[in-house]
């Protein structure tokens, strides 16, 4: 179990590094929004792993909130990008 948790941590770290690279590099703001979405999902995944491993439920509401925030963020940016023309 411990080994699995360490591997999972490494994989999630790798994923968030990829997302951070895309946030820094991303040629357009839409790329960045997308990468932020992925980063949020990875953070949500880390919260879920914490809950599963330590057997508590403190973060469930946070998990729902994160997915809603990611949604509102990307929709807002997409809206403004389309309207700016």
């Amino acid at each position: 179990m411990t080994v699995a948790v360490i591997v999972v941590g490494l994989l999630l770290g790798l994923a968030s590094l990829c997302a951070l690279y895309r946030i820094a590099r991303g040629p357009s703001i839409l790329d960045r929004v997308l990468a932020i979405d992925v980063l949020l999902a990875t953070i949500g995944g880390a919260l879920a792993v914490d809950m599963a491993v330590n057997r508590h439920l403190d973060n469930v509401v946070l998990l729902v909130a994160i997915s809603v925030i990611g949604f509102i963020g990307s929709v807002t940016v997409a809206r403004f990008v389309t309207d700016r023309k």
């Binding site: 179990m1 699995a4 990829c18 997302a19 999902a41 990875t42 995944g45 879920a48 792993v49």
Partner: peptide, 29 residues
């Protein structure tokens, strides 16, 4: 549980690698 966690983490990596390697916005999506 360990299998599920590993699978989930793998999917996160898939998202990350896809973001890095795909050529344009829609493919990254």
């Amino acid at each position: 549980t360990a299998i599920c966690l590993l699978g989930g983490a793998l999917m996160s990596v898939a998202a990350g690698v896809g973001l890095l390697r795909f050529p344009d916005l829609l493919a990254r999506m």
